[in-house]
Simulated scan of single mutants.
Amino acid sequence: MSFEGSTLVDWQAFQRARSELGTGFVRILGYFQEDGYKSVSAVEAAVRANNATALVIPAHTLKGEARQFGAEPLAELAEQLEMIARGCVETHDTPDEAVPHAAKLRPLFEETLTLLLREATPLQQRRPVAGGGFGRRVI
């Protein structure tokens, strides 16, 4: 599954979060990465186990954290899963409807995370050293 990068992240919201979080931004993004993988795995496990109750909290957590970084499509998918789960808890039903949504979750999370991390920690372009530099022969 491929998503267009410009539509996965609201870059204005991302920059706002970066500005508000200041020096803690990269650390908080790291928490999002760690917690996000845990939430995605918990969602997948809950769907496999047909356990709507176990689906609510990880979907809710992922929704909030994704919104913090401007990852709106990911937040919307997590919200759909959360709403399905909450409805199933109320009706004492299994979350069968969540299966196709859960199948999209990991690829969307990983692609979104890649974009967020790339923007947060861009590699500096290296310029060749004048005169060849170490390991480069001057011709």
Score class of each variant (00 low, 15 high):
2 S>R: 06
3 F>A: 03
3 F>E: 05
4 E>V: 06
5 G>A: 08
5 G>E: 14
5 G>F: 12
5 G>K: 02
7 T>F: 02
7 T>Q: 08
8 L>I: 04
8 L>M: 07
9 V>L: 00
9 V>Y: 00
9 V>E: 00
10 D>K: 11
10 D>V: 02
11 W>H: 08
11 W>L: 05
12 Q>Y: 01
13 A>S: 11
13 A>W: 03
14 F>E: 00
15 Q>N: 07
16 R>H: 11
18 R>F: 12
18 R>D: 12
19 S>H: 10
19 S>G: 08
20 E>I: 09
20 E>T: 08
23 T>K: 13
24 G>C: 03
24 G>N: 15
25 F>E: 01
25 F>A: 09
28 I>C: 13
30 G>K: 10
31 Y>L: 15
31 Y>G: 08
32 F>L: 02
33 Q>G: 01
34 E>H: 15
34 E>I: 14
34 E>Q: 13
35 D>A: 15
35 D>Q: 13
38 K>H: 08
40 V>A: 04
41 S>F: 07
43 V>G: 02
43 V>N: 04
44 E>Q: 12
47 V>L: 01
47 V>P: 08
48 R>A: 02
48 R>V: 00
48 R>I: 01
49 A>G: 02
49 A>Q: 01
49 A>R: 04
50 N>D: 02
50 N>R: 03
50 N>Q: 03
52 A>C: 06
52 A>E: 04
53 T>S: 13
54 A>Q: 12
54 A>H: 07
55 L>F: 03
59 A>I: 04
60 H>D: 10
62 L>Y: 01
62 L>H: 06
62 L>N: 03
63 K>L: 10
64 G>L: 07
65 E>A: 15
66 A>W: 11
67 R>W: 09
69 F>Q: 09
69 F>G: 01
70 G>C: 09
71 A>G: 09
72 E>P: 00
72 E>M: 04
74 L>Y: 08
75 A>F: 13
75 A>G: 14
76 E>A: 12
77 L>C: 10
79 E>Y: 09
80 Q>M: 07
81 L>F: 00
81 L>Q: 00
84 I>D: 01
87 G>C: 03
87 G>T: 06
87 G>Y: 05
91 T>Q: 15
92 H>E: 15
93 D>K: 05
93 D>R: 14
94 T>L: 14
95 P>A: 06
95 P>G: 05
96 D>A: 07
96 D>L: 06
96 D>F: 04
97 E>C: 05
100 P>V: 03
102 A>Q: 09
102 A>N: 06
103 A>E: 14
103 A>V: 04
104 K>H: 04
104 K>N: 11
105 L>Q: 11
106 R>L: 10
107 P>N: 02
107 P>T: 08
108 L>Y: 13
108 L>R: 10
109 F>H: 13
109 F>P: 07
109 F>R: 07
111 E>I: 08
113 L>Q: 13
117 L>A: 12
118 R>W: 01
118 R>K: 12
119 E>P: 01
119 E>R: 05
119 E>S: 03
122 P>R: 08
122 P>K: 12
123 L>F: 09
123 L>D: 05
124 Q>W: 05
124 Q>L: 05
125 Q>R: 07
128 P>I: 05
129 V>I: 12
130 A>C: 02
130 A>P: 02
130 A>S: 07
130 A>M: 10
131 G>P: 01
131 G>E: 11
132 G>P: 06
134 F>D: 11
134 F>C: 06
135 G>I: 13
137 R>D: 03
139 I>H: 14
139 I>T: 14
